[in-house]
Amino acid sequence: MKRPINIHRLVSWLVVLAVAIGGATFLYKLVEFANTATHEDMPGFALVSVVPYLTATFGFLLLAIWAFLRGHFRDIEQPKYDMLDQEREYDLAEQQRSHPTDPTA
């Protein structure tokens, strides 16, 4: 009896395959990067162009972790409603002011 193809399993294996191929090419690039970084003709060249990127990315990783731990991604849609509620309050407050200030004065 022929077994039916499990589409979820198939997709999962395809994802694993894609990640594995991507990872292998990334590894190759890392080796190439290490070779270039120590090459005598261009001392420090690769380090200088890549280190700022890695430093910035590491900073963002820390920021993302901080935001996650502070619960910034928990009720993720709420800020868009809060923002408009605040604006409505500001509009009401502005309406109560009798005369706008004159910034050109």
Binding site: P52, Y53, A56, T57, F60, L63, A64, F73, I76, E77, Q78, P79, K80, Y81, M83, L84
Partner: peptide, 20 residues
């Protein structure tokens, strides 16, 4: 409100990691 705040955050973090 913006259509999806979650998608907007994907845009932000994507910029952070892909752009430099």
């Amino acid at each position: 409100p913006i259509w999806s705040h979650a998608v907007s955050l994907i845009g932000f973090w994507g910029l952070a990691f892909f752009y430099p």
